[in-house]
Design a protein around this nucleic acid. Structure first.
Lengths: 186, 186
DNA sequence: GCTTGCACTGCAACTCGTTGCATAGTATCT
DNA sequence: AGATACTATGCAACGAGTTGCAGTGCAAGC
C-alpha cells in the first residue's frame, strides 16, 4: 500500500493539515493518487502513531484549529527505504473496457453517450494539464520542478491517448449503430 | 464496484468455472480488470445467491470436479442495466509518479533501475498485445471481435505511452544523476 | 436572527480486496 | 516411493477504501 508514501511525499513538498492535503488530492498529486479526506485522516493518525510525522496543533484566530503535520527523521528514512524498494506497476481496472466487451451482448449504440462523456472529461483534464504546463513549467527548471514536470507529462500523454481512443471508439460504434445486438440463444 | 460485471461479461463470452475465469483474468480480460481467484470465487458465490448466474456441478473423470457457471436471464438484464448506467473514469493511482516526486528528496539516480524494470515490463506487454493483434484481429472482424479489438487497442496505446515515458524519465534522471539530493534543512 | 456555505476534524459501519492457509485428486518425473 | 506441479475450490483474518454521519466555528447573504 502507498497512500502513506503519497502523503509523506506531499508533506515533504509542503507541511500541511489534513484538510489541505485532502484538497491537494483533488488536484496536483491527486491526479496521480486519489484519496478521500477520511482515508487521509486515518492514515495521518496512523503515521503519527508510528512516528513518521508529527502534528502540531495551531489555534486559529479567524479560522478553525488545524493540525499541521511535518515529516520526522523516521519518516524521511521511510521514504528513502520505499524509494529503493522495487514496485510493480498497478493493475489496470477500467470499466469502460469491460463495458465495450459487454456491448457485444446488448445495444452497442447505447454506449455512445457514455463514450462522449468520457471524451469530454479527458479533454477537460488535458486542457487543465496544458494550463499547468504553461504556467508552472516553462523556461528552465530546477531538479524538483523537472521531476514534477515529468510526472505531469505522463498525465498529458495519458489523457491524450484516452482522447484519441474515445474518438476511435465512438466512430466504431456509430458504424455499428444499426446492427442488431448479437444473441446467443433466442 | 464492478468485478461482478467483469465476470458477467466474461461468462457471457464463455460459460466457465471459477478456475478458468481466474486464468482468464491473468490474460485477456485481466489486462483491463485484474482479480485474484479468491475474489472471483467470492463474487461468483454472491452472484449465484443473487440469481444472476447458475452453477452446474460437473463430475470430472480424469479431472477434479468443477462448477460451470452461466449467466441467467436476471444476470443478462443486470448487464443491460449496468451498460446503460453512466460510470466515471477510475481514479489513477500510480506509485511510480509519487516516487518520482519523492525522488526530489532523495537519491534520484536510485530510481533508474526501477524505471528500467518498468520499461521492460511495458515493452513485454506491448509485444504480447502485438502478438494477439496479429493473431486474432487481422482481416475483417464481426461486431464482437471489432469491439474486443478496440479494447486491445487501448492497451496498445497505453503500453506504448508508458514505454515512451519511461525512456524520457530515464534520460532525465541520467542527466541529474550527479546532482546532490535536495535538502530542506541541515 | 436564520440559513447557507465553507474550513476543519473525525467516528462508525460497511464493502472490497489481499494474503495465507487448507484440501484433494491427478499427472509426471526421478 | 516420494517429490513436485497442476487443476480445482474454498475459508479465515486482515487491511484498504468508501459512504454516511456528526460536530465546531466563522463569514456572508437575506
Amino acid at each position: 500500500m502507498s497512500l502513506d508514501h503519497a502523503l509523506l511525499v506531499s508533506l515533504l513538498e509542503k507541511p500541511s493539515s489534513g484538510y489541505e492535503l485532502a484538497r491537494r488530492f483533488d488536484r496536483s498529486i491527486g491526479y496521480f493518487w486519489h484519496a478521500t479526506h477520511q482515508q487521509i485522516y486515518k492514515v495521518l493518525a496512523r503515521m503519527e502513531e508510528a512516528g513518521w510525522i508529527s502534528g502540531e496543533l495551531q489555534a486559529g484566530e479567524a479560522a478553525p484549529d488545524r493540525k499541521l503535520y511535518s515529516v520526522s527523521r523516521a519518516g524521511r528514512s521511510e521514504v528513502a527505504r520505499w524509494l529503493a524498494e522495487p514496485t510493480e506497476p498497478e493493475g489496470v481496472r477500467d470499466s469502460l473496457m469491460v463495458k465495450l466487451r459487454g456491448a457485444a451482448f446488448g445495444e452497442a449504440g447505447a454506449l455512445i453517450p457514455e463514450l462522449e462523456h468520457h471524451r469530454a472529461l479527458h479533454a477537460n483534464r488535458l486542457t487543465a494539464y496544458r494550463v499547468i504546463e504553461a504556467r508552472d513549467f516553462s523556461g528552465t527548471l530546477d531538479r524538483q520542478r523537472a521531476l514534477q514536470y515529468q510526472v505531469l507529462k505522463s498525465g498529458i500523454r495519458y489523457e491524450q491517448g484516452w482522447l484519441e481512443w474515445c474518438e476511435e471508439a465512438i466512430a466504431l460504434l456509430h458504424g455499428h449503430e444499426q446492427d442488431p445486438p448479437r444473441r446467443e440463444k433466442k
